[in-house]
């Protein structure tokens, strides 16, 4: 049975189509990163997955149930982007309160410990830092030992060490068969922790695969050089060149055949300080999600 089965989802807000005919299937046990620029439709899709928003068209199933039914049975848990906490509860009270609303919750002490907030259990939520509140949200999500954990920008406000701890516990849980879907704008996080990356842009999926596959989609490599005079027209005409960025004397050529470009630059032009780099996820992200994305990149 699929953990998540979104079929042809569409959601409109007035004239804006937030999610457009989006289909996504996630197998049990996968860790999937949901990446996209602001306004791409990530949160709207997650809202529909959680039953917080109603799709205008299409269907949502979580482990074969409707979202509401899956939540009632404790199959889904979610950590939302912001808010969602009462300032005048203590950390432990927040967890105890939420635990009382779940079927067979894990013990409060265990969850506090797991989220690394046992030491601040008696602190008022209003006095916790952003990172501590984020850990508390994580603790709440762990209470029901859900089969599907949905995290919307889970590490916003966490320091580097806290982020690392957080992801360590997520991975440990996933190893036991939990499915995790997270939205993030930290590309390195998607790269490091997801088995699969789904890139979304203007409400549609533009890339779906392992980090390596997604990087590969955003063609090849960049050759950067200092090129006095900055004559770029010839570079654009070379085979395999998908784009040229020129800034002053510095030029970056996006291409599939970096050897050819390098040879041209060094033999036919006055180029120096040559650097060849392979695409990182960030480049793929920019290439695949830019709003004015032409099929080949263009000079800025």
């Amino acid at each position: 049975m699929l953990a998540v089965d979104l079929k042809k989802l569409t959601k409109r807000y007035g004239l804006v189509t937030a999610v457009n005919d989006l289909s996504l299937a996630i197998e049990s046990g996968e860790i999937v990163a949901f990446l996209g620029p602001n306004g791409a439709g990530k949160t709207t899709t997650i809202d529909m997955l959680l039953g917080l928003a109603r799709p205008d068209a299409g269907t949502v199933q979580v482990y074969g149930r409707s979202p509401a039914d899956a939540i009632a049975h404790g199959e889904i848990s979610a950590v939302m982007q912001s808010g969602g906490l009462l300032k005048d509860f203590t950390v432990a009270e927040t967890v105890a309160y939420t635990a009382s609303l779940h079927v067979a919750p894990r013990p409060v002490a265990e969850v506090l410990d797991r989220a690394g907030i046992a030491k601040i259990a008696t602190r008022r939520v209003g006095q916790c830092s952003g990172g501590e509140q984020q850990r508390l949200r994580f603790a709440l999500a762990l209470l029901s030992s859900p089969r599907l954990l949905v995290l919307d920008e889970p590490t916003t406000g966490m320091d580097v060490e806290t982020r690392r701890d957080f992801w360590r516990s997520i991975r440990e849980d996933a190893a036991q068969g939990r499915t995790v879907m997270f939205a993030t704008h930290y590309l390195d996080e998607a790269d490091a922790y997801a088995d699969r990356i789904v890139l979304i842009r203007q409400g549609s999926i533009v890339a779906d695969g392992t980090a390596a596959e997604v990087k590969g989609l955003a063609s090849g490599r960049q050759v950067r050089a200092t090129l006095p005079g900055g004559e770029t027209d010839v570079l654009r005409g070379l085979p395999g060149v998908t784009g040229v960025d020129a800034q002053g004397d510095s030029v970056t050529v996006h291409c599939t055949d970096s050897d050819l470009v390098a040879r041209h630059l060094l033999t036919q032009t006055a180029a120096r300080d040559l650097e060849v780099t392979s695409s990182n996820l960030e480049a793929a992200f920019v290439a695949l999600t830019a709003d004015d994305r032409p099929e080949s990149g263009s000079a800025r």
Partner: peptide
């Protein structure tokens, strides 16, 4: 504060 929304993610 978004607490109601959080509660809607519980049974």
């Amino acid at each position: 504060l978004g607490w109601s929304r959080q509660l809607r993610l519980t049974p």
